[in-house]
Design a protein around this nucleic acid. Structure first.
Lengths: 351, 351
DNA sequence: TAACATAGGGCAATCGTTTGTTCACCGCAA
DNA sequence: TTGCGGTGAACAAACGATTGCCCTATGTTA
């Protein structure tokens, strides 16, 4: 059992409050040098560390943050988490991780537990558009930051990338390669990234004067299996696409599988572009052309924004939006795997 | 601000303790039906949930577990974490995730914070042999379970696989394919998995009457970069190996890269076998032959063992050891990617 | 000599729950 | 009237720390 203030006080023959003040280095404390050293020796000897639970009760802060995501086995979220932890740990916070599998009920249940635990703040990366969970957080006055997806434009603290720009970049790249029948493995329209990347896809087509064939846009969701199914459907069309923009790298990986099963070569028979540039993307064969976003930085910036909120007590709906960059690899251009990177004027974190 | 017992008591015109008993459904409570319904209505209306911090202080349990691992972006640990969470959440626990990057000092720092927070238990997957951190946990009487790696044989609660058997299986497979110069990308001798897989490798060689060439065993550590470097070194030998057993799938992936840089074909010029069967292994091209272990189950079993310890208060050094299985894919045999699995009498979780 | 600083700590309330014990009241039997 | 048992709740003491205020010596100043 760890030692308590009371025990130390008894051993040093002083009042617990005195030990506490010494331990916390209370600046206004007047104390005899001998008493102080006696107490300090005791503190070191017993390796006293105040009970965090009691401290949390009194001080109304737990030094715990929570991260709510769909699934940590998705490399995107793993990298994101590292960023968050790297931002939080140096400031004395530790981080609870909650997986929801994208199920609203699980998200709700986690958030309720977290609130009961009085975590100091929450980082949410599994938000839907108009998400009631976010409204609830706002209403509870729990500090929070949304990452990657937002719930309502401009209302919540948010860090992510400019999805429209990124998707446009990706689609333009395929157009530039001469593709005309470009398919989109799309995210759900209930999620901001789904909507915005879809929009970017359409913007690029329109700018190039290519009519958008509705048959070429199919909803795949954000993970591998959905990507495989959707791709399979596209490839069974009478006029299948020659290129694909996938809403997510994981979706693109699903597409790889589906294409290969039909004996198609990438990129010769089918060019593929993803989104996020997860570490895995560069390891695929061929490498996956994708839209790079600074995932780790998403996390560390989100953590810092959250801590700022917590420490100042002000909830500004600040938005940090990174400019995405296209990373060209072999999945779109034959032989591009010597990693040529085209950067669209990397405007630094906006506003 | 969430509502407190005191406020509810005032609104219901009863004493806080009464509200508490109603909320907790105290079986020994004698109360007028009308009072009870009045309080229950209030509880529902305000969505009262007791302050977990206060509760934790009083009850001496936080309903928080902690997981200490090297790095969540390693797919092995991501899968492990999911297993743990899936085991813990249904019982009302949430889980703190701590990354150490394998640095003892960070592990120590995390464990100290966790102890101060009074987490109910710790799952450690980043243990060294004779790890002082483990001794410290034992000494603190913090419930804990070691996963994948152990610190001292038979002393700690542990869940993992039989590393010697797994490594033997992997090496025998390569021998069976006719390889004689078989290299090993080895883990550090300071870690149980490093030692035991090395041992399995030697056992298989010895059984086959193949003399172990010390030049063919190089320490690579458990992650990609080390694997690449070590592989590169092996390939620069006068008599390079024709086959490799890598201590870990990530190490094997590093080896893929190094081999490819030299223009070698897998498996024609170099056969590779890994360990763990992370999800990524099956997606590589060619698929990675590897030793399958039930990662997710490691996690859920560890969580259940930990909860049992917590709830019963007894720390039995129970060991759950799974029998590993060889999964043959294209990285060792040309054309094996139709996923043939050889199972060595899957003896179920041993004592 | 009385008033007053100052040094050196002690006191006690508080954070929000839980839980063993006590208490007031009522009806009923002796 | 007294005593007793049962109801229906209130009381109060924790859990371990923090912090504003108070108290007692001792020395200093007027």
């Amino acid at each position: 059992m760890p030692v308590t203030l009371k025990e130390l006080a008894a051993r040093a023959n002083v009042h617990p409050s005195t030990v506490s003040r010494v331990a916390n280095n209370d600046p206004g404390l007047r104390i005899a040098a001998t008493t102080r050293t006696r107490i300090e020796a005791l503190l070191r000897e017993t390796e006293y560390r105040p009970n965090g639970v009691a401290r949390g009760l009194k001080l109304r802060q737990t030094l715990v943050l929570a991260v709510v995501i769909p699934d940590i086995t998705n490399p995107f979220f793993a990298a994101l988490f590292r960023g968050i932890e790297d931002g939080a740990t140096p400031r004395g916070y530790q981080v609870l991780l909650c997986n929801t599998d994208g199920i609203p009920e699980r998200q709700r249940a986690h958030l309720h537990s977290l609130a009961a635990r009085r975590v100091d703040g929450v980082i949410l990366a599994s938000t839907f558009l108009k998400d009631p969970a976010v409204r609830w957080l706002r209403h509870q006055r729990t500090p929070y930051v949304l990452v990657n997806r937002f719930s309502e434009e401009g209302v919540d603290p948010f860090v992510g990338s400019d999805d429209v720009v990124g998707a446009t970049l990706a689609t333009q790249h395929l157009i530039g390669l001469g593709h005309v029948r470009i398919g989109h493995l799309a995210g759900q329209p209930t999620v901001s990234t789904g909507v915005l990347r879809r929009k970017g896809y359409h913007v690029a087509l329109a700018e190039a004067g290519i009519p958008a064939d509705p048959d070429l846009l199919v909803e795949s969701g954000f993970v591998e299996e959905g990507g495989a199914k959707a791709m399979d459907h596209l490839l069974s069309l009478k006029h299948p696409p020659t290129a694909i923009f996938a809403v997510t790298d994981m979706t693109a990986i699903g597409a790889y599988g589906a294409a290969r099963k039909r004996g198609m070569r990438i990129p010769e028979d089918l060019a593929i572009v993803g989104y996020n540039d997860i570490p895995l993307a560069g390891r695929l064969i061929p490498g996956l052309t994708t839209v790079h976003v600074p995932i780790h930085e998403f996390g560390s910036v989100a953590a810092r924004m959250l801590l700022e909120q917590i420490e100042t007590g002000v909830l500004t709906p600040r938005r940090v939006v990174f400019a995405p960059q296209l990373v060209i690899r072999g999945s779109s251009c034959l032989g591009a795997d010597e990693q040529l990177v085209r950067r669209p004027a990397p405007r630094s974190p906006a506003e």
